[in-house]
Nucleic acid binder design. Structure first.
Lengths: 167, 167
DNA sequence: GTCTATAATTTGATAGAC
DNA sequence: GTCTATCAAATTATAGAC
C-alpha cells in the first residue's frame, strides 16, 4: 500500500547519508525508485518535506533499536553504541543526523529541528543513565565522531577500535 | 599581491565549513569577495581545484597551530584539542575536513585525498604520542564528534564539556 | 498515482574584449 | 585580472492529461 512511500524514503535516506542534503536531487530519487520526479513531488511536495520525514523516521527507528537492546538486558551506553555500529555496518554509511548536523544552518528549519531532536534524545537518555550531565554530550560526540573518522578512512574497524571500551 | 587569492580561499573556507562542498557556488564566493564568478575561475579553474586548495591550506594551518602549542610546552593531546577548539570558537564553524569527510565519496578525488591526509596526520601523531595505536582514532573521533554535536546544538560549550578531560 | 511538459532559477564553466 | 556575455546542464517545483 504505502510501499512506494517506503521506497522513496529508503532511496532518500541512502542518498542523504552518502552525500548530504545538498548532494541529492528528486530526479535521482525518482530514478532509484523507477518513477519520475513529478511523482516524488506527489508524495513529498518539497525537498524539505522529504528530508524531514526521513530524519524523523531515522530517529524513531534508532530509538526502537536502542530500546530493543535495553529490553534484552544490554546497558544503555552499550545499546547506543550498538545502534550506531549497526547503522554503520549495515551499509557503511554515515549517521543521517550526523551528516545533516554538519551541513548546518542553511538547511530548512524542519530538517534542523529533527536533527536537534535526535541529538537531544541521545544526550538526555545518556545523562540519565549515568547521572553525569557531561556524559551525554561526551558519549554522543564519541559515537558520531567514530563514524565520521571511520567513514573518512574507509575502514569500519576504526569505529570498533575507537569505541570498544564502551561495550 | 596574492591577497585576492586569500580572499577567495577565505570565503570558500567559510562557505564550505557552513554548508559543505555541495552547499556553495562560485557565484556566492564571487559576491563575498566583490568580483564576478568568471574571475574566480581565473584563480581556480574548477570547483574541485578550489576546494582541494582550501583543504590543503586548512591542514597546514592546523598542523602549524598544533606545533606552536607543543613548542610552548603543551602536551600533544592538549595541543590537538586546543587546535580544534580554536577552529570552533574563532567562528563557530565545523572542522573543514570533518564536513568534507561526511559528505563522502561523491566528492572529487583530490578533495577526498586532502581530507584523508588530514585524518591520517592526526591519527599518526596521536598514536606516536601515546604509544597506543587505538589512541589516534579514538582522540580524533572525540574531537570531530564534539565539534559536530556542539554545532548541531548551537552551543560551543558542549565541545568544552565533552573534551575537558583531555586538557 | 503517475505521466509529459514546462516554467523559473541556478549551476559550473568558457570565449573573448579590455 | 577582471569583465560581459553566454552556454549547456541540472535543479526545485507546478499544471494538467490520463
Amino acid at each position: 500500500m504505502t510501499e512506494r512511500l517506503d521506497d522513496i524514503m529508503n532511496a532518500a535516506e541512502r542518498r542523504i547519508r552518502s552525500s548530504g542534503y545538498n548532494g541529492f536531487s528528486f530526479r535521482e530519487i525518482a530514478t532509484d525508485v523507477g518513477i519520475k520526479s513529478a511523482s516524488v513531488h506527489y508524495h513529498f511536495p518539497t525537498k524539505a518535506d522529504l528530508a524531514a520525514a526521513v530524519a524523523r523516521r531515522y530517529r524513531e527507528r534508532f530509538e526502537a533499536g536502542v530500546a530493543d537492546d535495553e529490553a534484552s538486558g544490554m546497558p544503555r551506553i552499550s545499546a547506543w553504541r550498538d545502534a550506531f555500529r549497526r547503522a554503520l555496518s549495515d551499509d557503511g554509511l554515515m549517521c543521517l543526523c550526523g551528516i545533516l548536523a554538519v551541513e548546518g544552518d542553511n538547511l530548512p528549519e524542519p530538517v534542523i529541528a529533527e536533527v536537534r531532536r535526535f541529538m537531544e534524545l541521545g544526550i538526555e537518555r545518556l545523562n540519565n543513565a549515568t547521572g553525569d550531565e557531561d556524559a551525554g554530550p561526551r558519549i554522543m560526540a564519541r559515537l558520531e565522531g567514530a563514524m565520521l573518522v571511520a567513514r573518512s578512512m574507509g575502514d569500519t574497524r576504526i569505529f570498533d577500535r575507537a569505541t570498544e571500551d564502551m561495550l
